[in-house]
Computed example of a mutant assay.
Amino acid sequence: MASESRFEALRTILVEPSSLQARIIGAECDEIGLRQVERVGTIAEALDTMLRARPDLVLSALYLPDGTGTELVEAMRSEGRLAEVPFLLISSETRPQALEPVRQSGACGILPKPFTAAQLSRAIGRTLDLLGTSHVLENDFDLESIRVLLVDDSPNARRFIRRVLENLGLSHFIEASNGREAARMLADTMVDLIVTDYNMPEMDGREFVEYVRTRSWQQEVPILMVTSESNQSRLAAVQEAGVSGICDKPLEPALLQQLLASMLRKSEIS
């Protein structure tokens, strides 16, 4: 398989309490050349193993004996040494209310069960690309001068999205925990790009987009919404409000790069 050489050096931790599921996933990992896989069964074991030797990748189930995959990735994102370790959730769970927390937590991707080796390979590739350095926008834009306003009520989500944007070459950020706080910042701080969540307290993403487009002195600034929201009527309302682009959580690296490039080019032209 073409991706084998890319994966063979990766030290991976598989967090899976089921011996049967661990064997199935392990066989798929072996098929794509991911052979340095250490299996643990709990959050406590996973964190202890990671803190002893930082892994290159974590694959995890959602439901664990001492918590959830969401709690694991949140603990990782809060721990300096583990904050940038790529995390891929592998789960048969499909309920939005069950997957929403992990989408917000800083997971790099979600791979549904059952899956093929090819699907696992693509999911791991996207996961690695998301946190890998890829300054693909540098040739087209003066990234050093781009000022980004990052708006999300989750500190973990802000930290994770910031890391992803830094990997694209962006370096100047200000942060807000909700739309109301961000609106206050816009009153006296000029920005070149806004990246915002949808579901936030006090002023949500739609209300914030409407504020920027109708009441701010920076009405033309590009706005990218990064959200796990799946309600089509709500997303349509956001588009009607004037958002420049919408990207799902977990982030899709290629789509994120495409959206950012398109928005920044339009802002330069205008």
Rank of each mutant, 00 (worst) to 15 (best):
V85D: 02
I13R: 01
G205R: 09
L131I: 06
E28V: 15
N199Y: 03
L165K: 01
F160W: 09
L259V: 15
D142N: 12
L137S: 01
S105I: 11
P96Y: 01
L88G: 09
N139R: 09
G80A: 06
E45P: 00
T133S: 13
I146P: 03
F7D: 04
C108L: 12
L130G: 00
G41L: 07
G41Q: 05
S92L: 11
M200G: 02
H135L: 05
E45S: 06
A83P: 00
A123V: 12
G132C: 06
V37G: 06
E8W: 07
S228T: 10
E268T: 07
N167T: 15
I246H: 05
P112T: 15
P17N: 13
A46C: 00
E100V: 07
I161E: 07
S171T: 14
Y211W: 09
T227F: 08
L168N: 04
R6H: 12
A9H: 02
Y198W: 11
R103L: 01
A254M: 04
R11G: 01
T12H: 09
L64C: 02
M190D: 05
T70E: 09
E84L: 11
S230W: 02
L130V: 05
Q104Y: 14
Y63K: 07
V58Q: 02
R265P: 00
R184E: 12
Q239V: 15
L259T: 15
L14R: 04
Q119L: 15
S154M: 12
A237V: 06
T42R: 00
E210G: 02
A241C: 02
K266N: 05
R158C: 04
S230P: 01
C29S: 10
F141I: 01
G179Y: 02
A27V: 15
P17G: 11
S3Y: 04
M1H: 08
R35D: 11
K113E: 14
I110Q: 02
L89V: 13
L82S: 06
M76I: 15
P201W: 06
Q218H: 01
T133K: 08
D30K: 15
H135Y: 09
L255G: 04
F87H: 11
I25N: 12
S60N: 14
